[in-house]
Write a protein that binds this DNA or RNA. Structure first.
Length: 486
RNA sequence: CGGGACGUGGCGCAGUCCGGUAGCGCACCUGCUUUGGGAGCAGGGGGUCCCCGGUUCGAAUCCGGGCGUCCCGACCA
């Protein structure tokens, strides 16, 4: 008899564990469309909370939302040389519509730089029209050869910010502002502390001058590129004639940035915090932060249900997102397992014994070190204290993730042999010197299956910059971080 | 796109080698008893065996061709 109640443990097969958790915690399901998934209410609720937090951050820094078309004329995509080279293999193209073949094919957007900057060109005449700080929430499509739920799907949801500025300095500052904002969001909301830094030329966005990224480390010690912010220079402005007249009366091309995070973040959350019992959703992202399970006992369940509703209402007044699970078709134990698998941060049990004692049973999704799983807390204290407990849980998840990342980090590696050994030994992020030669990246990738995740920002660098390139040839120009990646 | 595995009620699987009325566990429905860590008993419903074609009196099973999913790789803002 197959025991399908337990998940495949992470240590046994991380990829299988991930697929099971996504489906069995009802985040998403496979759809009839190859490579595309259905995001179910529990997963979409998490995404909505992510959206809300990010959107607030964008608005607070002067950005506005707008919406541009799904379809982009093929000729637009072809204008920027590096851009088309980067995206051509993964484009889905609409060639027929209205029963006829189209004169010019449309591309289903893989990203919207081209159509957005073509519009900015219409809207900008003067430096007084700048900056333009627009974001859009949208779906995009990239025909990837191999897809994975949330991490790489043919169609995915994201936000893409596109800005235009009068100077390179201002655009660069915008790029870094957003990078920092992404980092803050990942830390404070997903409890997923990323490294930030600059992408090497071979890893940067097709069409960018410089790409910055947030790189998070998953529990299997593989890196996940969780967000990117690109300084586009004048590459797109020149192709789309995005010009303005400066204070001095000169005609100049605008400077652009673009930046995005996607539903991939949900996958990052899963692989940052999930355990062998299921998902663990950080309280700030959880569609339900607490679930109340009334313990029903035949005859007199009415007082228990009344107390359940009362406690739920009091918690909602405190701003806690509460769900009540009063289904009588399942035993309490079955409900516990279900909500644990879905990662609800706190469970509250209310039964006849609690009514008698005036207490509630609190169970945290992850029991703190050295504590009993169930805490019987006087009712008023339990209710008033729950927001604080949720905050503490959120903070502990971040601490644990940061510790895990730092424990898996190896610094001062000085040869490719040593790099391979570290990675084979289970290291996550490995720091070495790098000459800046793209050939070294190719060699290491072949040998170690790892890539340069980024040239880390100053605070992540080692105290002492390595003197030599990891290849053994040439001086190090940068310290870089290597990892096997998703 | 290369290598490997798989495709049988909603889910997990057996049956395939060796062709002969499609099975098991879970889930689901009804009733009763239950309910503080995956409830019990009784009764019941549900399957073009991924698709197309071939062989055969007869195909889940054999043969050919597709399609899909997963894993590894290549590719990948």
């Amino acid at each position: 008899m197959a025991d399908d109640k337990k998940l495949t443990p992470r240590a046994e097969d991380f990829a299988t564990w991930y697929n099971e958790i996504v489906q069995r915690s009802e985040l998403a399901d496979y759809s009839p469309v190859k490579g595309s998934m259905v995001i179910r209410p529990w997963g979409y609720g998490i995404w909505e909370n992510m959206q809300r937090a990010l959107d607030d951050m964008f608005k607070a820094t002067g950005h506005e939302n707008a919406y541009f078309p799904l379809l982009i004329p093929m000729s637009f995509i072809e204008k920027e040389k590096a851009h088309i080279e980067g995206f051509a293999p993964e484009l889905a193209v609409v060639t027929h519509a209205g029963g006829k073949e189209l004169e010019e094919a449309y591309v289903i957007r893989p990203t919207s730089e081209t159509i957005i900057y073509s519009m900015y060109a219409k809207w900008v005449q003067s430096y007084r029209d700048l900056p333009i700080l627009i974001n859009q929430w949208a779906n995009v499509m990239r025909w990837e050869l191999r897809t994975r739920l949330f991490l790489r799907t043919t169609e995915f949801l994201w936000q893409e910010g596109h800005t235009a500025h009068a100077s390179a300095e201002e655009a660069e500052a915008e790029t870094l502002l957003i990078l920092g904002l992404y980092r803050k969001f990942m830390e404070e909301w997903i409890a997923m502390p990323p490294l930030t830094g600059l992408k090497s030329d071979s890893e940067k966005f097709a069409g960018a001058v410089r790409s910055y990224s947030c790189e998070a480390l998953m529990q299997d010690n593989k890196a996940l590129q969780a967000g990117t912010s690109h300084f586009l220079g004048q590459n797109f402005a020149k192709q789309f004639d995005l010009k303005f007249q400066s204070v001095e009366g000169q005609e100049e091309y605008a400077w652009n940035t673009s930046w995005g995070v996607s539903t991939r973040l949900v996958g990052g959350m899963v692989m940052s915090h999930g355990d062998d019992d299921g998902l663990v959703v950080p309280p700030r992202l959880a569609p339900a932060q607490a679930v109340i399970v009334p313990i029903l006992s035949g005859d007199d369940s009415a007082p228990v249900l009344a107390k359940t509703d009362e406690v739920a209402a009091r918690l909602r007044d405190l701003g806690v997102r509460v769900r009540v699970d009063a289904r009588d078709s399942l035993s309490s134990g079955a409900k516990y397992y279900e909500w644990e698998r879905k990662g609800v941060p706190y469970r509250i049990e209310i039964g006849p014994k609690d009514l008698a004692k005036g207490s509630l049973a609190l169970v945290r999704r992850v029991t703190p070190e050295g504590e009993k799983r169930k805490a019987f807390v006087p009712e008023d204290e339990a209710i008033a204290g729950l927001p604080g407990r949720l905050d503490a849980f959120q903070a502990e998840l971040l601490d644990a993730a940061r510790r895990r990342r730092d424990d898996a980090t190896v610094r001062g590696v000085s040869s490719v042999d040593e790099l391979a050994e570290a990675l084979d030994g289970g290291a996550g992020f490995v720091y070495t010197g790098w000459s800046g030669d793209a050939g070294v990246e190719g060699t290491v990738k072949e040998r170690c299956k790892a890539t340069i995740r980024c040239i880390p920002d100053e605070e992540f660098r080692s105290g002492e910059t390595p003197a030599k390139c990891v290849s053994g040839e040439g001086a190090a120009v940068h310290e870089v971080v290597w990892a096997r990646a998703y």
